[in-house]
């Protein structure tokens, strides 16, 4: 199990990386953390002709908070996200989510930019980007492009990035004070890809949601920002309301079948997650089994 031969270029700057991408386009692959790319190459599932290693571009690494915007460089690795006090303070949902990404040795190499550009529908960070209303910043031959997370994920391993573009950063609006979050996923073993997962951000006032964003993952070919969340906003949540939202959620899902679960099981687990999320965010244990009854 050895990768096919390829040529290697160590990008010295973003401009250099873009030049290489422009010259080689789809024949090239950008190597960021490599934690998804290299397994695929070792298994010879893909055999790029050129690897453009952006690992030395330190300007793409780091977390900055400025004027209500959290900017995370594409090369920031999962371990850094997990340890970042800025993220813990301003996007704790992300901190919770990253703890579920694979294992420590993988988190030391894997990057947020790599994860988003890879666009595995079962991975955690893409869904978080939807929930948090992130903007993906890409640079290409024509300059910088800002892509809303809602329009970024286009399918299994597919994104709105053009072959000549490089994902350089993400921007997250800092959620308002007192907003709350919920993250949970069902995975067979610690660090495994989720069977179904949910990254939620909410604002609760007087026992009601005034805002609720539900980013589901592993429920289709891309992460899903559930519209059905709307059914839970500005209403008193009863089991009936929750059941209605679950039913609406069911209509939004288009889950895939794999070794771990049938589509029916994914639909079921998504509804369980919805109930647990609502129950947890509203601190109402009696709703926990609500939608599943």
């Amino acid at each position: 199990m050895k990768a096919s031969a390829f040529a290697y270029a160590r990008a010295t700057s973003v401009a250099d990386a873009l030049e290489l991408l422009t010259a080689h386009g789809e024949r090239a692959k950008v190597l960021s953390g490599g934690q998804s790319l290299l397994p695929a190459m070792n298994l010879r599932l893909i055999a790029p002709e050129l690897i453009i290693d952006i690992g030395a571009l330190t300007e793409l690494r780091g977390v900055v908070v400025k004027e209500g915007v959290l900017t995370i460089g594409a090369l920031t690795c999962h371990a850094d996200l997990l340890k970042s006090p800025e993220i813990a303070a301003h996007a704790p949902l992300l901190t919770d989510a990253v703890a579920h990404v694979a294992h420590p040795a993988i988190r030391n190499r894997g990057t947020i930019g790599g994860s988003l550009a890879h666009a595995d529908p079962a991975s955690e960070l893409p869904a978080c980007m939807l929930t948090l209303g992130a903007t993906i910043i890409a640079r290409g031959p024509g300059g910088e492009r800002r892509i809303a997370a809602s329009g970024f994920f286009a399918g299994i391993y597919e994104t709105a990035l053009a072959p000549q573009e490089l994902l350089v950063a993400v921007e997250l609006p800092v959620p308002p004070k007192n907003s709350t979050h919920f993250f949970h996923e069902f995975a067979r073993r610690q660090g495994d890809y989720a069977i179904v997962g949910l990254a939620a951000q909410a604002f609760v006032r007087d026992g009601r949601f005034t805002d609720l964003r539900l980013g589901f993952f592993a429920v289709g070919d891309r992460p899903l920002l559930a519209r059905s969340a709307g059914k839970l906003v500005d209403v008193a949540i009863t089991p009936a309301v929750l059941a209605e939202a679950a039913s609406a959620l069911n209509d939004e899902l288009d889950p895939l079948e794999d070794h771990q679960a049938t589509p029916a099981m994914r639909r079921h687990l998504a509804k369980i997650l919805l109930a647990r999320c609502v129950s947890s965010l509203l601190a109402r244990p009696e709703l926990r089994a609500g939608a599943s009854a």
Binding site: F186, R188, I195, Q260, A261, T262, A264, M265, R267, H268, S292
Partner: peptide, 13 residues
């Protein structure tokens, strides 16, 4: 005894 097997046996899916 996968979750799929157990949920099926429970009639949940």
């Amino acid at each position: 005894l996968t979750p799929q097997v157990i949920l099926t046996a429970l009639g949940r899916i």
